[in-house]
Write a protein that binds this DNA or RNA. Structure first.
Lengths: 247, 247
DNA sequence: AAAGTTAGTTGATTTGCGTCAAGGATATAT
DNA sequence: ATATATCCTTGACGCAAATCAACTAACTTT
């Protein structure tokens, strides 16, 4: 009874069933990256029984800002944009969640941001109450969840530096290097950076307009620091870009 | 053995002794605001015995970015600026810590930001190792610490909106309203907003220059939304300002 | 009291990025 | 094939905030 999925994209249900069976942790690609890594096999089993395996088609909203937060998610594949809207429509993307990320760290009564699947996303859904109760009996998981929250806080503070004190070019480069580093933990790739989000999303993440983002991509491509591919970018001069991001 | 206080301001030690005796929790003004509120009296006593009561004179650096983080702090009075520096000297203040705030949430090996006392600051210092061990035996405290980290994360995400998508006037107003709300939890005041930080600090928090901050203060004062006092501002039209901050 | 020092304000000018506008590329639908 | 939609790019122009510069006020030092 989540209020989510009121208008599922029916056509995609065949390839993206929004509920799957349990017991899939053994071959879950997110296990070692996610909060689950804190658990012993029998504990993982117990948590698995509380989970509902979900699949969201591209562009589906997973949850919305200010709604009651009845559930939390563990992302097992795909990418999600997390964003806050101002009353006049201005949007700030506060982060992108990838494989292994946990949504629901804030544990408040209501969501503080909205979340949309960028491509197809799979996730383990838990009742917030059940997950919270599980935490009470598994302090190791709480420690890991706290480590996740602390890490997210550090990331958010680094993003404040990017938003407050960096130029447009530095913002785009720092974004690409940061995303490359996150992908590398998931798929190992060190020069190919998939960009499942649009230029508008990148702009709303960096405090820029879509035009400025586009111009910076063009500028970096013209100076051969990267090449723009159909699904992202390939870094040609990663060291040079890292230097700009570290500036 | 913290590496901190190598050059204490000797003149101020008489009025700001940097170590005090324990057993002061009973009349600690921060107790109900801080992580300590999660503890039973006997637990509070046990934690108190691990603490070293510190006092930092105005302008003293409490710890620096990238240094090993051997200790954590519970702020019991005063205000602290938390900031990150870029190699070229650009500065981003990531937050101001007030009475009841906890420094050391990230629990990483090294500090991710620097911290300076703005005025005189008192704090309970704990060895990070000892505090971490205490957490292992007091899951209620870990829950509260996690709640603190989650709350800080929400604050940081709201700051991203301010930095990325708000105008200079909105930034200054949102800052004042946010600070007013924090002071009100500490001292109850709802229209007087003490500003222990400089205009430069405010600019470095909001991604603005000192001149722009000054101009916005002047503009708000000219339209009688506030008056500038020697130690801060007094809000004359809080409702109007809240509306701007909520925009 | 004179000379620094630090914090803040105000005005003139510049500029980086936003806004406005047009056009191109790719994908899905008809 | 043609139409429609979405995403992206590029150019011309404008403006909000940065930069540069001068000045005031409040303290501290000598």
């Amino acid at each position: 009874m989540t209020g989510i999925h009121e208008t599922p994209a029916l056509a995609s249900l065949a390839i993206c069933p929004n509920s799957r069976s349990g017991g899939e942790c053994d071959h879950c690609q997110a296990r070692k990256l996610s909060v689950c890594a804190a658990l012993e096999p029998h504990e993982l089993n117990a948590l698995d029984r509380l989970s509902r395996k979900m699949c969201f088609p591209a562009r589906e909203t997973m949850f919305e800002q200010d709604e009651p937060s009845d559930v939390v998610y563990n992302i097992t594949s795909g990418a999600v944009r997390l964003y806050k809207l101002l009353p006049d429509g201005r949007r700030q993307i506060v982060g992108f969640a990838l494989t292994g990320d946990f949504l629901g760290l804030s544990m408040g009564e209501r969501n503080v941001f909205s979340a949309d699947a960028l491509g197809e996303v799979t996730a383990c859904q838990f009742s917030r109450k059940q997950f919270s109760d599980f935490l009470d009996t598994h302090p190791h998981l709480l420690r890991r969840l706290h480590a996740f929250a602390s890490h997210e806080l550090s990331i958010a503070q680094e993003q404040m530096v990017i938003l407050g004190r960096r130029t447009a070019e530095e913002k785009v480069v720092a974004f690409l290097i940061g995303l490359r580093n996150r992908w590398s933990r998931i798929n190992g790739s060190t020069v190919n950076v998939p960009l499942p989000m649009t230029r508008q999303d990148i702009g709303d993440f960096l405090g820029l307009t879509i035009e400025t983002v586009s111009r910076m991509f063009t500028k970096l491509a013209k100076q051969k620091s990267l090449v723009i591919t159909p699904d992202g970018v390939r870094l040609l001069e990663p060291a040079r870009l890292e230097a700009i991001a570290a500036t």
